[in-house]
């Protein structure tokens, strides 16, 4: 039982860390602010959630796991709002969005 929980822990924590790595790369790799907001707002949220699920497997079923789940829920509720707030302010401020200049106009 312990071993199975540990295997799940390793899988989820590694997945979460990988998603957070990809999110960090995306923040640097995407061409403009709005696409970077996609990377920061979604990939990081998923990374944190998977990571916390992994820690919950490590912790077993007790009150601390419930609190960890509370953090996951809180991050899931707040991160789209924060991404929206920043993107909206950038739009009002007049930040232009990048577009692929090809035949479509």
């Amino acid at each position: 039982m312990e071993a199975i929980a540990n295997i799940f822990t390793v899988i989820f924590v590694l997945l979460g860390a990988a998603f957070m790595l990809v999110g960090s790369i995306g923040v640097n790799r995407f061409p403009d602010f709005f696409s970077r907001a996609h990377a920061s707002g979604k990939v990081d949220t998923l990374g944190i959630m998977l990571f916390i699920v992994g820690l919950m497997f490590y912790n077993g079923i007790n009150l601390t796991s419930l609190k960890l789940g509370l953090i996951a829920v809180f991050v899931g509720m707040t991160s789209p709002v924060a991404a929206h707030a920043l993107a909206r302010r950038a739009l009002i401020h007049g930040v232009k969005h990048w577009k692929r200049n090809e035949k479509e106009g």
């Binding site: 999110g23 790799r29 979604k42 949220t45 959630m49």
Partner: peptide
């Protein structure tokens, strides 16, 4: 959330 995270990660 899972779908969108993997999708944007794939794009990245």
């Amino acid at each position: 959330i899972v779908k969108s995270g993997t999708f944007v990660a794939y794009l990245t």
